[in-house]
């Protein structure tokens, strides 16, 4: 049975699938899994989004707090602190304990992507320069891991930022205190949000978009490209086998196409405010 081969000789079975230009779940090599985005599910958070791609799902919740900027920090800029967790419940290979290297790397990459894309101007988060600024704690929890968590996490983060509504706050200079009205809320003004597409590489030439969990384990290398509007904000190929320039060009083209699909999905979601499903 194909199930036995998957346990005993997964590499051989997968190579046979690739020869037929198909993947074990029936997708074509350049097809991504069905992606669903739901915004605003968590009422205790100021902004939230749940994003699912195949069996990988990530929930993002943003809570806003006010802080005094430290003396060595810029006085008129707020902060965004993304943090991705890969808890033991998302996959049986993860154990309970402190954040793994994968989780910490991914959190750092999310912050880097937000900065590079310029989607969020930090001066928007300033209430009173030097006295009070907003801090956005973006907590992402991976609820189910079946490959390609970074893309899904970035989509959830972007969707949650569009869902975020900050309470109105003003600094009373005479009394030197903060007045916050939690009932009055305004959305953020956002630039082009970063959206990523990951491809797995087999046999140095075959590219596979949106790898599932077992494909991620078997691949020789993986390339992540992130786009914000028309500009590329991240090109990441760490280690693995070498890749020709022509293959790299194909990666970039495929990822651009995928990021346009994701952007369309996110725009529909923002307009309708409901669950959006896309390919």
């Amino acid at each position: 049975m194909a199930a036995d081969m998957r346990a005993i000789q997964p590499e051989s079975l997968y190579k046979l699938h690739l020869e037929c230009e198909e993947r074990p779940d029936g997708r074509k090599l350049d097809a991504a899994r069905t992606t669903v985005v739901t915004r605003g599910g968590i009422t205790t958070a100021d902004g939230s989004a749940f994003c699912r791609s195949g069996h990988t799902s990530v929930l993002c919740g943003i809570k806003a707090e006010v802080c005094t900027p430290a003396t060595d920090a810029p006085p008129d800029r707020g902060w965004v602190v993304p943090n991705l967790e890969l808890p033991a419940l998302c996959h049986h290979r993860f154990r309970p304990g402190p954040p793994s290297e994968a989780a910490q790397t991914a959190s750092a990459q999310l912050l880097q992507l937000l900065d590079a894309s310029g989607a969020l101007d930090r001066t928007q988060l300033c209430i009173e320069a030097g006295q009070a600024v907003w801090v956005l704690y973006c907590d992402l929890i991976c609820l189910s891991h079946d490959g390609n968590v970074l893309d899904v996490a970035l989509l959830a983060l972007s969707a949650a930022l569009t869902d975020l509504r900050l309470p109105s706050a003003e600094w009373d200079a005479t009394e030197e205190r903060l007045r916050v009205k939690p009932a009055q809320r305004t959305p953020l003004k956002l630039g082009p949000l970063p959206l990523a597409a990951t491809l797995a590489v087999f046999d140095k030439e075959t590219l596979v978009l949106d790898p599932a969990g077992d494909e991620e384990m078997l691949c020789e290398a993986s390339v992540t490209v992130a786009w914000a509007g028309d500009s590329m904000v991240l090109l990441d190929k760490t280690g693995g086998c070498e890749l020709s320039l022509e293959a790299m060009d194909r990666c970039i083209a495929l990822s651009k196409k995928r990021s346009l699909e994701l952007k369309k999905l996110l725009d529909c979601c923002t307009q309708s405010g409901e669950v959006e499903k896309g390919e």
Partner: peptide, 10 residues
């Protein structure tokens, strides 16, 4: 980074 000042009240 910065000192805590305010969080949504309960």
């Amino acid at each position: 980074m910065c000192a805590y000042m305010w969080a949504p009240p309960f």
